[in-house]
C-alpha cells in the first residue's frame, strides 16, 4: 500500500511538473523554461522515416546521425536569445501554441533520476490561417535537483516523417 501510494504521488508530481512546463512554454516564458533544464541537458529530435517492417531498425536516425534538434544547453539558450532579439520573424508575430501532455509513464527510477515517457500534442496557429499540429512521444530523463525536477535529457519522437510545417521554431 505504501509503495502504491508513493507511486501515485510520484506520478502526480511528474504530471504537475509537465503541466507547469507546458504553461511556461505556452506563455512564452522561455527564460524560466530554460531553468528547468540541467546544464548538461541533451535535447534531441531524430529524423523518422517510413520504412517497411523488415527495416524498422532504420525508422529513426540514431544519436550522432542527422536530426532535427541536437542541442546542448548553450544551443537552447541561443534559441531563446534568438526569440528575444526583436528580429525573430518566424515568431514575431508570435505563434499561439498549446502543449498537451498525456499518457505519462514513469518507466524507471534510479537514484535521483527518472526515465519518463509521455505523449504530446503541440498545436500551433499563427498569422491568419496557419495551423500546425505535431503529435509524438517524449522520452525524458528527469533529475531531482534540490527537491525539484530538472530535465537532463529530452528525446522527442515525432509521428511525422516529412515535417508538414514550414519550420520547427517552437520547443517540444
Amino acid at each position: 500500500m505504501e509503495r502504491e501510494t508513493a507511486a501515485v504521488l510520484l506520478q502526480h508530481e511528474v504530471e504537475q511538473f509537465y503541466y507547469a512546463e507546458a504553461a511556461l512554454l505556452d506563455e512564452r516564458r522561455f527564460a524560466e523554461w530554460l531553468d528547468l533544464l540541467t546544464s548538461d541537458v541533451h535535447y534531441w529530435m531524430p529524423i523518422r522515416r517510413t520504412v517497411m517492417n523488415a527495416d524498422l531498425d532504420q525508422e529513426f536516425t540514431r544519436p550522432g546521425a542527422m536530426a532535427f534538434f541536437d542541442d546542448d544547453k548553450a544551443m537552447l539558450e541561443a534559441r531563446v536569445k534568438k526569440l528575444a532579439t526583436g528580429y525573430s520573424w518566424s515568431e514575431d508575430p508570435p505563434s499561439r501554441t498549446r502543449h498537451m501532455i498525456h499518457n505519462v509513464r514513469v518507466l524507471a527510477v534510479e537514484g535521483e533520476e527518472l526515465t519518463v515517457e509521455s505523449n504530446f500534442h503541440l498545436y500551433r496557429t499563427r498569422l491568419e490561417s496557419e495551423e500546425d499540429s505535431w503529435i509524438g512521444r517524449r522520452r525524458d530523463r528527469l533529475r531531482r535537483v534540490d527537491g525539484a525536477f530538472r530535465i537532463a535529457e529530452r528525446h522527442v519522437f515525432l509521428d511525422q516523417t516529412l515535417i508538414l510545417s514550414r519550420n520547427l521554431s517552437n520547443f517540444f
Binding site: 550522432g64 542527422m66 536530426a67 532535427f68 534538434f69 541536437d70 518566424s90 515535417i163 514550414r166 519550420n167
Partner: peptide
C-alpha cells in the same frame, strides 16, 4: 573523426533544416 562528424551534424542542424536557426525564418517569407 567522431569529433569532426559530431561538429558537422551540430553546425548543420543548428543552421539548416526546419529547426535550424537560419532556416526557421525563411519559410514564412
Amino acid at each position: 573523426t567522431a569529433e569532426q562528424r559530431r561538429s558537422l551534424v551540430r553546425i548543420t542542424t543548428h543552421m539548416f533544416g526546419p529547426a535550424g536557426l537560419l532556416e526557421q525564418d525563411d519559410g514564412e517569407n
